[in-house]
């Protein structure tokens, strides 16, 4: 039977190219001889059975709609409870938590796959390149994560989750950590899409979903992209530190 990769509600959670995560997973499976299919699941139908679910980022209104539909539907929560891997990005990460903020800051009920709570951040939106060093035990040995973040939330981690990574440059959860992991549910603020920029993370998810040992692929082009983005984010971090010092002198 083929591996079913489900992209959840692309019309609601598809603002930042995160649909690419599904494509990356399917191709990386097929290139290894694993039969895989991509299911784009619209919000007006029951979520199909899948072996791996991907949720992306979206605007405030659609985010609320997606959370309500997912809670009513129940498929995602049942699948996650049964150990099916879930990758949830940005708005998707927020809605798989316990609660997330409406546009006016009021807390809304999430799907509850991750023990995290997101509140509206006081500062301006976190927009820019982000670098983070993986922390979670389940992801031990992964190289530095790179992505682009664009969100206005601070996410607090409860005791039921581990942080996905430690922020090197950028904002992430807002407390120096980035993302969250519990079992096979991974939440992150990283766009890019995250799996295109971090193929090792894609392979962890694929390994969980397929149960197969995965042969290495030629990721020369991903490596070139990663090298460039890592360097850019480090330059950005140095520039930001310099700006902060200048500000401090002026005060």
């Amino acid at each position: 039977m083929s591996l079913r990769v489900v992209v959840v509600y692309p019309e609601l959670l598809g603002t930042y190219g995160d649909g690419g995560n599904g494509r990356v997973l399917v191709h990386r499976a097929r290139w290894r001889g694993i039969d895989a299919e991509l299911l784009e699941a619209p919000a007006d139908r029951r979520l199909p059975a899948g072996d791996l679910y991907c949720l992306g980022g979206g605007e405030d209104g659609p985010q609320l709609q997606a959370a309500e539909s997912l809670r009513d539907d129940g498929t995602l929560a049942a699948a996650a409870a049964a150990g099916t891997p879930v990758l949830a990005v940005c708005a998707g990460y927020q809605i798989v938590g316990r609660s997330f903020p409406a546009a006016d800051g009021r807390p809304l009920e999430g799907v509850g796959l991750l023990d995290v709570t997101t509140v509206k951040a006081p500062a301006p939106r976190a927009v820019g390149e982000i670098l983070a060093e993986p922390l979670a035990q389940a992801l031990a040995g992964l190289p530095t994560l790179t992505g682009f973040e664009n969100h206005g939330g601070h996410t607090r981690l409860g005791p039921g989750v581990d942080p996905l990574a430690r922020v090197v440059a950028g904002v992430g959860n807002g407390d120096g950590t980035e993302g969250a992991v519990a079992g096979r549910v991974v939440g992150t603020y990283l766009h890019g899409p995250v799996l295109a920029r971090n193929p090792a993370l894609a392979d962890v998810l694929l390994g969980w979903a397929s149960g197969a040992a995965l042969a290495p692929l030629d990721d020369t082009e991903e490596e070139a992209l990663r090298e460039e983005r890592l360097a850019a984010a480090r330059r950005g971090r140095r520039a930001a530190a310099f700006r902060r010092r200048v500000e401090a002198w002026r005060r």
């Binding site: 598809g14 930042y16 190219g17 995160d18 649909g19 690419g20 494509r23 682009f148 766009h191």
Partner: peptide, 8 residues
């Protein structure tokens, strides 16, 4: 600054 749209 974010070329993620390439995937759209």
């Amino acid at each position: 600054r974010d070329p993620s749209w390439l995937w759209d």
